[in-house]
Amino acid sequence: MIVFNSKPNNYTIPLKKLGDLIYHEGPILSLFIDDHSNMFLNKWVDCDDNTNHWMLSSISSFELSQFYHKTISLRQYYKACNQWAIIEIDNYLKIRKLYPLEHIPNAYLPKEDSFYSDILYTEFSNSLRAIYINNLAVISKHKSNVYDILELKIASITNSILDYANKSSKDIPLKETTLQEAAKNLSGPKTKNNSKDILPKSSDVLEIVQLFRALNHNIRKRILEFIGSNPGVNLTDIYTSLKIDKSVTAQHVAILRRSNLLTSHRKGNIVLYATNQKKLEEVQAAIDTLIEERKIIYQ
């Protein structure tokens, strides 16, 4: 493993994990987001007997879109990237060491033909890609400075103050938003020149990603359609009518419930399901809004 002069730290990265893009017996490439909706890739790059090295890099929605459209490879993204750091983290995103380097080591760069591949990337990634391919995401070139994230946190620890917290407090307070409102946020201003788009809050993105993930599955679509046509059915009705294994049905129903796409109520020992019409209407409205806003932006 490459040995660097390390800069020891001990703090948790202030990022929220959106999901793994590549997973094999553990995360390999993951997507994170900060409180300001800046996105970051965290790629496993190396290990020895005691530690793992990861490369944390900032990625704009424009770059992610290019990658999902296969316009650039992952190597091209990293070669052009000037916002990255090599870090050692533990299992809970606590940074043990930070390596300030001028160039990404060659051994950590993906190969030339590292273009997007449906069969290598996860279901989460394929769902996210569908959002970008269908022009449902805001495209902006804005991205955050990785070292701002890392250094600000150091400052806040050593001084017990709160540069970072002060910045966060300027955010719009979190509140319940409808999906349609979230979609409006996602679409950004209705101008052609929207390079300084304000990105949506991470909670909006998370909710929309979660909803699209829930909807983007053939079995779940069938279950939703069936319950929509037969409100008040129970689990047995669903799996016998659709001829799906009981446990598989239960898992998919649980995902739909967690996404608030289904409502349920108990009658004795039996749980009865119906579709959440309000949420489905919100989803429909959100999609309509996104499509409409895109039309305006590209006109």
Binding site: I22, L29, V45, D46, C47, Y108, K111
Partner: peptide, 17 residues
């Protein structure tokens, strides 16, 4: 094929898997 695909993204992947 999967080993090759993973190696394209992570040249060191063999060390982990």
């Amino acid at each position: 094929e999967r080993h090759n695909e993973l190696s394209k993204v992570i040249p060191n992947i063999a060390k982990a898997i």
